[in-house]
Design a binder for these strands. Sequence first.
DNA 1: ATACAATAGCGGCCTAGGCAGATATATCTG
DNA 2: CAGATATATCTGCCTAGGCCGCTATTGTAT
Lengths: 155, 155
Amino acid sequence: MGNIYDVRTYEPSQSIGYLMTRVKVEMLAALDRELAADPHLSALGVTSAQFIVLVRLVGTGNRKSATDLCKELSYDAGAMTRMIDRLEKKGLVRRMRCMKDRRLIYLEATDEGRAAYPRMLEMSVAVQNRFLRGLGQEDAQKLKGYLTRMLHNAG
Amino acid sequence: MGNIYDVRTYEPSQSIGYLMTRVKVEMLAALDRELAADPHLSALGVTSAQFIVLVRLVGTGNRKSATDLCKELSYDAGAMTRMIDRLEKKGLVRRMRCMKDRRLIYLEATDEGRAAYPRMLEMSVAVQNRFLRGLGQEDAQKLKGYLTRMLHNAG
DNA sequence: ATACAATAGCGGCCTAGGCAGATATATCTG
DNA sequence: CAGATATATCTGCCTAGGCCGCTATTGTAT
């Protein structure tokens, strides 16, 4: 009842899953190219993955733990530890042990990290607008609705 | 002229790029879970990434080179070499040096690899249908159109 | 208070992809 | 034919994510 695909007619290379994977790869690649081209950000050597974590940290208020970030981005905890290591080594993020709950480590963007934020947002917006060229606001809303629905169906 | 996002109102966590990345991650995770649950395929230890390469190899005719696969899947050549290594070690794929052009290595799914194909297609279809639940055929077509458009805009 | 979970972060091992350089082979050009 | 160029694959080094087990700390139940 209402299945989109049927095994007998299914074409992997035409499927929504395949297309979505491709688009995602291309968007991150485009972001990486923009980052490499920007005089400021290329000096910091920020990648698209680091970018996403940093935007999340600066943009939604500081004083976040690694676990918070993991939940928000559905990220693995071990991967996050190493990600923070890289960001810390680049001087964009600081670790600060919490004195009340000594298990916790608060993350804070450094001044340098915060300074890069506006330019990062601009890039993110520019890349997405480029990929969405030709779509109207209603189309974008529809697309967003489909994606939200799919995320919900993931359970 | 027709930009979807504006820096002043942009919400990273609500953006189409963010949502798409999330959906892609969830779809592959779901596929990995299905693969792990299947008696046959779990024995082979096939991951979702290997799955995609294998489907592409079996489904679109054998006698393919690594480079062909790289182009079709926008994959890195070095990464593909190692991917083939893993698939070969599992006995799902064979390398066969071409005698006319000795630079070329043809890839061929083994009997075992081909035998797993129908079940793989079923899974792929099942996972995608689950994620697309609640969408009609017109919605799916619209979504596919948006994605195709975005891929085209990638240049 | 002691034992038992639950939580936060870390580290090792695996798969995985991008990039640059090396090698072998094939093709093009003078 | 000789030299340059292009192509196919491989390898090493990097970032990156998932899984599992470890330790330290905190919370809970008996």
